[in-house]
Simulated scan of single mutants.
Amino acid sequence: MKKKSMFFSMVLLASLCSAPSMVHAQRGNNGNSHGNANGHDAPIDGGLSLLLAAGIGAGAKKAYDKRKAKLQEGAAD
């Protein structure tokens, strides 16, 4: 059983390590139909910032709830 899970872990690790070499971004041409005449790519910073803020908020709420439950447990004793 342990060998089977180790095998799947190794296959997953190998596929994750080789994935960047298999994935290629689409290249835009100059003067394409999307109104991007200079061929620059769209920034992804806005979406990543929102995901980071949501993760921090979720972690802070979880820590707050855990602390609140611990304080209520101590007050009940």
Rank of each mutant, 00 (worst) to 15 (best):
M1T: 08
K2E: 14
K2Q: 11
K2G: 15
K2H: 07
K2A: 09
K2P: 00
K3T: 12
K3A: 15
K3V: 11
K4E: 14
K4T: 12
K4A: 14
K4P: 00
S5T: 13
M6T: 12
M6R: 14
M6I: 15
M6Q: 14
F8H: 08
S9K: 06
S9F: 08
M10F: 10
M10R: 12
M10P: 00
M10E: 06
M10D: 04
V11Q: 09
V11K: 06
V11L: 15
V11G: 02
L12F: 09
L12P: 00
L12I: 10
L13H: 02
L13P: 01
A14Q: 02
A14C: 11
L16V: 10
L16N: 06
L16W: 04
C17A: 15
A19W: 08
S21Y: 08
S21T: 09
S21Q: 11
M22W: 13
V23W: 09
V23H: 05
H24T: 14
H24E: 13
A25Y: 06
A25R: 10
A25E: 11
A25V: 05
A25N: 09
Q26M: 11
Q26F: 07
Q26S: 13
R27N: 13
G28N: 07
G28F: 05
G28A: 11
N29V: 13
N29C: 04
G31L: 04
N32V: 04
H34W: 13
H34C: 07
N36M: 07
N36L: 06
A37G: 01
A37Y: 10
A37T: 12
N38L: 08
G39N: 15
G39I: 02
G39F: 01
G39L: 02
H40K: 08
H40T: 07
H40S: 07
D41F: 05
D41M: 07
D41Q: 08
A42L: 13
I44H: 10
I44E: 14
I44C: 05
I44P: 00
D45R: 03
D45A: 11
D45G: 02
G46T: 08
G46C: 01
G47N: 07
G47H: 04
S49F: 04
S49V: 07
L51W: 03
L51A: 08
L52F: 06
G55W: 01
G55Q: 03
G57F: 03
G57W: 00
G57K: 01
A58V: 10
G59R: 03
A60Q: 03
A60R: 01
A60E: 03
A60K: 02
K62L: 15
K62C: 07
K62I: 09
A63H: 03
Y64K: 07
Y64P: 00
Y64I: 05
D65L: 08
R67M: 11
R67E: 15
R67D: 14
R67H: 10
K68E: 15
K68T: 13
A69H: 04
A69Q: 14
K70R: 15
K70V: 01
K70T: 07
Q72D: 13
Q72V: 08
E73M: 08
E73R: 13
G74V: 06
G74W: 05
A75W: 03
A75I: 08
A76K: 13
A76R: 12
D77C: 05
D77F: 06
D77T: 09
D77I: 11
